[in-house]
């Protein structure tokens, strides 16, 4: 009898240790990255690091502005493409599609989310790059190789489709049926009901989905790296190449221990990503949790 209780006590303490250890990973990552980027931060001010455009590691010049702009360009393009398409898809799946169609559609959204990033990259190289080079860019600019922030944005957009669709459908499903029925019974069409009643209720959830999608897009590495062109200048049009932060880290890890301060600079890039994504994730998760609580009450 005693042994069982002692066993229970020991196991519960062990579980606590495992839990604390895995939760503290979040803290340890932050501290570790900060500690390793400290040498760079002590030499160059934070403001200068993120506002300077000169990237010459061999001369000790580390300006992250082109990379930050590269990240913002591809993320911006991705959201502009993905949000309207995903929102319409989610509304269609939840509100319009007949049960049979819905059953067929939802698995494909899941299948899309299961495809590894590198495959999106391969697809980008094989499909999107030639499409931009031969069919889209010639209408706007004289010459483009296709490797551009636009290509990065399109590939990212497809990657975040499933995330936005699944969160928005989830939110749409939680909206009480009574609200919809009341609006319909007053003679509103289905679209009017969606526009004026359902979407208004779902706005916090849609914002949360977008914030989450942005943080996902910020951190996406390999697919973007393969199609973006990776040129450390600030892009001025969608057909110019860009160089997002994750691609910077992934492309240069090989040299990072041979050039002074280079490893510190790459860890600083990782720290920037970590902090931004942490904040964005926290915000969207809190919005979603709040929404869930409000609707279940």
């Amino acid at each position: 009898m005693q042994i069982r209780i002692i066993k229970d006590k020991i196991i519960s303490k062990l579980m606590l240790v495992f839990t604390l250890a895995s939760v503290s990973v979040l803290l340890v990552i932050g501290i570790g990255l900060f500690y390793r980027s400290l040498p760079l931060l002590q030499k160059i001010s934070f403001y200068h690091l993120i506002s300077s455009s000169i990237w010459k590691p061999l001369k000790g010049l580390f300006g992250f502005f082109p990379f930050i702009m590269g990240t913002l360009w591809v993320t911006g393009i991705a959201i502009i493409i993905a949000l309207p398409l995903s929102l319409l898809t989610a509304i269609y799946i939840v509100e319009y599609a007949p049960a049979k169609v819905r059953k067929v559609l939802s698995p494909f959204v899941n299948l899309l989310s299961g495809i590894p990033p590198v495959i999106f990259g391969v697809w980008g190289v094989l499909f999107i790059i030639p499409l931009i080079q031969d069919h889209i860019a010639p209408h706007f600019v004289e010459f483009s190789t296709g490797y551009s922030v636009l290509a990065g944005g399109v590939v990212l957009a497809v990657m975040i489709f499933p995330l936005i669709v699944s969160i928005i459908s989830e939110v749409l499903r939680t909206i009480p049926k009574e609200l919809k029925d009341a609006s319909l019974s007053l003679g509103a069409t289905q679209w009017e009901t969606i526009k004026k009643v359902i979407l208004r209720k779902a706005i916090p959830g849609i914002i949360a989905a977008v914030v989450l999608a942005i943080s996902r897009a910020f951190g996406e590495t390999i697919a973007v790296l393969m199609v973006c062109g990776n040129n450390a200048v600030v892009p001025h049009s969608v057909f110019e190449p860009g160089y997002p932060l994750p691609a910077l880290i992934a492309n240069n890890y090989g040299e990072m221990l041979s050039i002074p301060m280079y490893d510190s600079a790459l860890m600083f890039a990782a720290l920037l990503l970590f902090i931004i994504i942490l904040l964005f994730n926290l915000i969207s998760r809190l919005i979603l949790a709040n929404l869930e609580r409000k609707l279940s009450a």
């Binding site: 839990t19 939760v23 990552i29 990255l33 992934a250 790459l266 970590f274 998760r285 949790a289």
Partner: peptide, 26 residues
């Protein structure tokens, strides 16, 4: 319990490149 769930949700959102860089540090 909910705080822990939140932390794991946030960890889920951390991109793999950051895990890679951190793994490299370890």
């Amino acid at each position: 319990a909910n705080t822990l769930r939140l932390v794991f949700d946030v960890l889920f959102g951390i991109p793999s490149i950051v895990y890679g860089a951190f793994g490299f540090l370890i």
